[in-house]
């Protein structure tokens, strides 16, 4: 049984850092460049994030995540390079089309911001077991009920996907057209999605009762089967991250 996750098991220092610190780092990686607002800051943040990816030995796994957005980024570079409102200075000319400096830099800025988010989030998702992240948040006082929802989604989706396979096969063997003309494909959508959706909705009733009788709504203070793994330096790291955030804000206000 798979759970939905990009986690790559490993024993690097990055893997050992606690999930909350990594969450804090994401916030920093997104907002510090925006607060400071210079190219240098954005580039430096990206480089730092990338080095964490390298230390965590998950560089190969980050590529598909970046690939997702790279095609759009390419189209942004083309469209803004050609048509950006403030375009004045030509950067280079390729046959009949001219790419302008302003639009090109504007697009690069966008690319940098997107990659910053992607890489920072990747550090968390590639080196943290989802269940550890959720448990860490619940220990920090996050609602256990919402925590439950997150963990169960990660198992429910692969679960539903396996029913999907069974249903698709069954419907196809009954002669459902899943290829060909658009109208045929639209018609096929219903018999495919209908049974899975109905089933999953109907089973929520019994699942809710099953949870209730396992004290899901208990007013008592929850305990945990697993002991909390304390990393001694997590407080220190979090302190540094917060200090950097504060420094960036001060820098912005003063300059």
């Amino acid at each position: 049984m798979k759970t939905l996750s990009l986690y790559q098991p490993g024993r690097s220092i990055i893997h050992k850092i606690d999930p909350v610190t990594k969450l804090l780092f994401i916030i920093l990686a997104i907002f510090v460049p925006i607060i400071i607002g210079t190219w240098g800051a954005a580039l430096l943040t990206l480089l730092i994030s990338l080095s964490f990816i390298l230390i965590g030995r998950v560089f190969k796994k980050v590529l598909p995540i970046l690939g997702f957005s790279s095609i759009i980024i390419l189209s942004v570079i083309i469209i803004q390079g050609l048509f950006y409102v403030n375009n004045k200075a030509p950067l280079f000319t390729l046959g009949p089309v001219t790419v302008y400096r302003e639009g090109f830099y504007y697009a690069l800025n966008i690319a940098l911001r997107i990659y910053n988010i992607l890489v920072a989030v990747s550090i968390l998702v590639l080196t943290t077991k989802p269940s550890d992240l959720i448990e860490a948040l619940v220990r920090k006082g996050f609602s256990p009920r919402i925590g439950y929802i997150f963990s169960s989604v990660l198992q429910i989706i692969p679960q539903m996907m396996s029913t999907v396979d069974t249903i698709s096969d069954a419907q196809r063997s009954r002669g459902l057209e899943t290829e060909g003309r658009l109208s045929a494909r639209i018609k096929a959508f219903f018999p495919l999605i209908g049974p899975v959706v109905m089933n999953s909705l109907i089973s929520t009733r019994e699942r809710a009762m099953a949870l209730e009788v396992r004290a899901f709504n208990s007013k008592r203070k929850k305990t945990f089967l697993h002991e909390e793994v304390k990393t001694g330096y997590s407080r220190f790291l979090q302190f540094i991250l917060l200090a950097i955030l504060l420094a960036a804000i001060v820098w912005r206000v003063l300059s």
């Binding site: 439950y148 929802i149 539903m160 999953s200 909705l201 929520t204 009733r205 699942r207 809710a208 949870l211």
Partner: peptide, 17 residues
């Protein structure tokens, strides 16, 4: 209610499907 809460994972799964 618990029933509404367990509706959420089902909803996310349905979105995905």
């Amino acid at each position: 209610s618990t029933a509404s809460l367990v509706l959420i994972p089902a909803a996310v799964g349905i979105n995905y499907i």
